[in-house]
Simulated scan of single mutants.
Amino acid sequence: MQQRVQLYIGPQLARYGFGEGHPFEPDRMDAFWQETIRQGLDKRVSITAPVMANRQALERFHTPEYVDRVIACSESGSGYLDYGDTPAFKGIYEAAATVVGTVLAAAEEAINGTHKRCFIPIAGLHHARRNMAAGFCAFNDAGVLIETLRSQHNTQRIAYVDIDAHHGDGVFYAFEDDPDLCFVDVHEDGAHLYPGTGFSDETGKGSAKGSKLNLPMRPGANDADFLKVWPEAETFIRAFKPELIIFQCGADSIEGDPITDMRFTPNSHAHAAASLCKIADEFSQSRIIALGGGGYNRANLASGWNAVLNEMCSC
């Protein structure tokens, strides 16, 4: 029986992470993968190695000056790419470009291959701006993906859906005036959590006004709270009729994460994944690309991401 989902795994992807004591360490992928094997999901997916993006692809979203800066910091292995959250290390350029390249390979597979559903655990670096890093994110793989889908695959109407505890500000503000980017983000209230954005009145600008839906949640919000707001998200996405769905399924919204205050369980992630797969089947030729996003409690990210992967395999 042919597997429905392409899963991208490999040491090159795991290398994106920071030093000991930093919440985003390279062991995150292994924590996910060991749980994948334990649940037997490795037998239900097609496994593919990571791919590094070239500079031309990165510059579809990022400025040349910023790419130059990442290369220089990568060579020196010192300093920060932002104001203190995203430290440089030797090889960070190659590691971050591999996250981007792997996401772009998934897009190629979803558009032209046999697997319309793809999952990349170390991806969804949604804080990076076009000209700077932010919040552990050197390059914005989702941003590069959106630009690539438009320029290389003629895919215009894209839904970006984000349930990470942190608002996907790097994606939101880059496409705030883009009416063909449907943006839906369920996150902890920006008044309480980095990056301090994503309020409900932020709905897009100009011709894109009304194409963005921010659903901030109170600290301590649980599965019941998620299930109250999700129908609004689902209705919003369905009305847009996307050609492809990008799902940032950050696990830092699960109870017990060391840097957030949300109290979801993996059931919320599974519910969102099942819902989005159905929408993708209806409108997007089943095309959905899931990005692991945040998550700094290893047990949480293992269970949350695998809950998404299981639904992608099952629906």
Rank of each mutant, 00 (worst) to 15 (best):
Q2P: 08
Q2D: 14
Y8A: 08
Q12I: 06
R15W: 02
Y16L: 10
F18P: 03
E20C: 08
W33L: 08
E35S: 05
T36G: 00
T36R: 00
R38Y: 01
R44N: 14
V45L: 06
I47E: 05
P50Y: 01
R55M: 14
R55W: 14
Q56Y: 15
T63A: 06
V67F: 08
D68H: 09
C73Y: 08
G79C: 12
L81A: 11
G84K: 10
K90V: 14
Y93G: 03
T98N: 14
V99W: 00
V100Q: 07
V103A: 14
L104D: 05
E108D: 13
E109Q: 11
T114E: 09
H115N: 10
C118R: 01
I122Q: 05
I122D: 02
H127V: 03
A128G: 09
A134R: 04
C137N: 04
F139T: 10
F139R: 11
V144I: 10
L145V: 03
L149N: 01
T155Y: 03
R157I: 12
A159W: 01
P179H: 07
P179W: 03
L181T: 03
F183M: 09
E188K: 04
G190M: 03
G190V: 05
H192M: 09
T203K: 13
G204C: 10
G206L: 12
S207V: 15
K209E: 14
K209N: 13
L213R: 02
R218E: 15
A221C: 10
N222T: 12
K228L: 11
V229W: 03
W230V: 04
A233V: 11
A233Y: 07
F236L: 07
I237Q: 04
C249N: 12
C249W: 04
S253I: 05
I254V: 15
T260K: 07
T260A: 13
M262R: 03
F264Y: 15
P266Q: 14
N267T: 15
H269L: 15
A272H: 05
A274M: 09
S275F: 13
A280H: 05
E282S: 09
S284G: 11
G294V: 06
G294N: 06
G295K: 00
L301Q: 07
A302N: 01
A302P: 00
G304N: 03
L309C: 04
N310R: 14
N310K: 14
E311G: 00
